[in-house]
Amino acid sequence: MTNNIKLLIEFLGGLDSIFDNKRTYSVEVDNDKIKTLKDLIFDYIVKELLVKPEDNYSIYIQDETIRPGILTLINDVDWELEEELDYVLQNRDVISFTSTLHGG
């Protein structure tokens, strides 16, 4: 039996353009395999949600973390206050990524 958790993943501030122009993804992941935010990003988002990874990977990821200039919020809290990549995912978490780089 798998141990699934439900998550809401959002790509905002124009970042949706590399995620099939969809801002919100409501997903269910296997919590035994995807435990931390790092797992979610590298084993799920990059593999399952990112469109044309060969072109777009570097827009989202840089040096094995989220690219500087993209704001990561965990339940509306700046991920800097939540252990960043090591954050342990909970059922019904809302994870949002917002690009701050687009023109104002």
Binding site: E10, N75, R92, V94
Partner: peptide
């Protein structure tokens, strides 16, 4: 306009 979702989990 779709506003960002409201989180449900609270510490």
């Amino acid at each position: 306009f779709t506003p960002p979702s409201n989180p449900v989990n609270k510490t």
